[in-house]
Design a protein around this nucleic acid. Sequence first.
DNA 1: CGCAGGTTTGAGAGGAGTCAAGGGTTGTGG
DNA 2: CCACAACCCTTGACTCCTCTCAAACCTGCG
Lengths: 253, 253
Amino acid sequence: MIAPPQPPLERFAARLMRRSRFDDRDRAAFLALPAQPAQIRAHADFVRLGEHVDHACLVVDGLVARFGQNERGDRQIMAVHIPGDMPDLHSVVMSNTGSGLHALAATTLLRIPHEAIRDLTRSRPAVAEAFWRECVVDAAVLAEWVLNVGRRRALARTAHLLCEMAWRYGAAGTDRAFQFPITQEHLADMLALTAVHVNRTLKSLREDRVARTGRSMVQILDWDRLVEIGEFDPAYLEAGRELEPEASAACAA
Amino acid sequence: MIAPPQPPLERFAARLMRRSRFDDRDRAAFLALPAQPAQIRAHADFVRLGEHVDHACLVVDGLVARFGQNERGDRQIMAVHIPGDMPDLHSVVMSNTGSGLHALAATTLLRIPHEAIRDLTRSRPAVAEAFWRECVVDAAVLAEWVLNVGRRRALARTAHLLCEMAWRYGAAGTDRAFQFPITQEHLADMLALTAVHVNRTLKSLREDRVARTGRSMVQILDWDRLVEIGEFDPAYLEAGRELEPEASAACAA
DNA sequence: CGCAGGTTTGAGAGGAGTCAAGGGTTGTGG
DNA sequence: CCACAACCCTTGACTCCTCTCAAACCTGCG
């Protein structure tokens, strides 16, 4: 069941190689990974809470959230994954994580069997290290979320999230915009606020001409102020990038 | 600079092998890791915020917190590490994490150079996978902390933390106790509360005869109620343990 | 056109923060 | 062995950020 190299896998390989060094054989072995495409409709939970999975997925297009919930059913989104991310790469070495995956928008995935990934990492140490590093970068984002949710007020917290997403989409800067098709309810689940309070917070950012959020877009009107309000420092997102130190330092505050 | 096998490393090897499979050569290579002991006094930051490190540490004795802080200087503890843990194993593949390490109590460490760990993982895939898995387990705890801080009230949040620590110390159960030498200030930094509110919350647990906290000990008076209040489910702590499914399931709620 | 889902706004309640003071413990030095 | 200092814990009163409940308003779509 070896599939021919697919463009999304090529893109992910390129992404991995920004942070980790692959030789030609690593790259070839990686691209030989079997992968099965899947379409997920918006607002579907495609991995339920606590479910065991035997494959990891790569986001080709769309937006995916990893979530948990308390006993009252209040959801908490713990991570957001954009195209090029693998939301549950961790499941390769720990198959039951107790969290679920939800499509925030219509999403295209590539499913890759755990078994194939394990075989690959056992034969190619550089690939194993790259996957390890991806998981560690995800954990660094998670750590920043603990800080954000725990020690920042609603306004700073919201601004910080917008900064993070803008940065990850490569859209950091004044008068830039990016696709972010989520409801205020979903934002609330990311920020550990209520939808009502998210609404008021976004209103404040809008009225102060800092950022404007719409149905499916976020427009940044004043990047510097957004960074200042959100206490944003992209170091935690860039830390894995020893390989191209010069890249994307241009739009920093 | 190869050191003779040290007891703490032996203990950590045993711990790794609960979750990951090592053969004799993996184990021998692991035990040959060079390690330098270090004593840290209580309440010292031994890795400052944003500092680059060239070694990872193993907690031999004591208690270590990984922390971040907002611009006001409010600290947020993102992880607590007990003897046998490696608080910054992630730094092997991502050397600048933007968080610091703090000794919550007098602590003995073993420092292991990144270079040695990298050499080991490149030659022994099983060890690389074990380290990857350890990082993923840490990330699972981190994800649970996002949920805890984001979606649980002070009482539940505090109870959940006590449950987690009891479980990790192997002291889960009614009328059991464990060493946990931290101040209410430190608890507040873990729970994203103020010390004053932590105090009131602990008072409530004490008065309801659920748990009693002292200077250096936590006594659990009613494990079942503590689990119920904290909505605690140890699945996220046990998920990495495919190798000994029967172990420590006895004290569950 | 009308419905469903999402957004916006208001009013009131409540959980946690802030400020401040007093009381305990622990450790140290005289 | 006592005394003191430092640190931590405890409690009260008040404030304020965020939640809750509720209603009205969009807006895209069947």
